[in-house]
Amino acid sequence: MNANQIINMIFRMFVRKSLSRGMNKGFDMLAERQRRGKPDAPRNPEAAQRTGKQGRDAARRARQGMRVIRRIGRF
C-alpha cells in the first residue's frame, strides 16, 4: 500500500464515523422536536411513557434503515 491509499482509507473512516454520528444526532433532534411540539395537555404517566417509547422506536428504526441503505450501497 502506498501512502495515498492509507490516507484515503483513514479519511473514509473518519467521514463514515462523522456521518453516522450526524445522522444519529439528527434523528434524535427530530424525535425531540416532535415531543416538544405537542401541546401540554394533562396526560397520565403511562401515555407519556408510551409516546416517548414510540419516538425512540422511530429513531431506532430510522437508524437501522440508514445502516441497511449504507450496506446495500457498498455492493
Rank of each mutant, 00 (worst) to 15 (best):
R35E: 01
R33L: 08
N24K: 07
N8F: 12
G52V: 01
T51R: 11
M23V: 14
V15W: 11
L19A: 06
R21Q: 07
A48C: 09
Q54R: 01
A62M: 04
R12C: 11
N24M: 03
R21M: 13
P39N: 10
R50L: 13
M13T: 06
G37T: 04
D40W: 09
M23G: 10
M66E: 07
V15P: 06
M13Q: 04
R12F: 00
A31Y: 00
R35I: 01
R67L: 02
M66R: 02
V68C: 05
V15M: 02
A47H: 02
R56W: 02
G52W: 13
P45H: 05
A58M: 14
R61F: 00
N24C: 12
P39T: 07
Q49I: 14
I69R: 08
M23F: 11
M66L: 10
E32N: 15
Q64Y: 14
K17F: 09
N44R: 01
D28H: 08
R70W: 05
E46I: 09
A58W: 04
I7G: 07
G26P: 13
R61S: 10
A41Y: 14
M9A: 11
Q54F: 04
M9P: 12
V68P: 10
N24D: 13
R50T: 06
R60M: 04
R60L: 05
R61L: 01
R70L: 07
A58K: 10
G52S: 04
Q34P: 13
Q54C: 09
G65N: 00
A59L: 03
M29P: 00
F14M: 05
M13V: 03
K17D: 06
G37E: 03
L30S: 11
A41P: 15
M23K: 07
A41I: 15
A31N: 00
Q34L: 07
R67C: 15
V15R: 13
A48F: 14
A59I: 03
R61A: 01
R36C: 05
E46K: 00
D57S: 11
K25P: 06
P39C: 08
M23W: 10
L30M: 12
R50S: 02
R36Q: 13
A31K: 01
D40P: 05
R67G: 03
G65T: 00
R70I: 09
K53M: 12
I7V: 14
D28I: 05
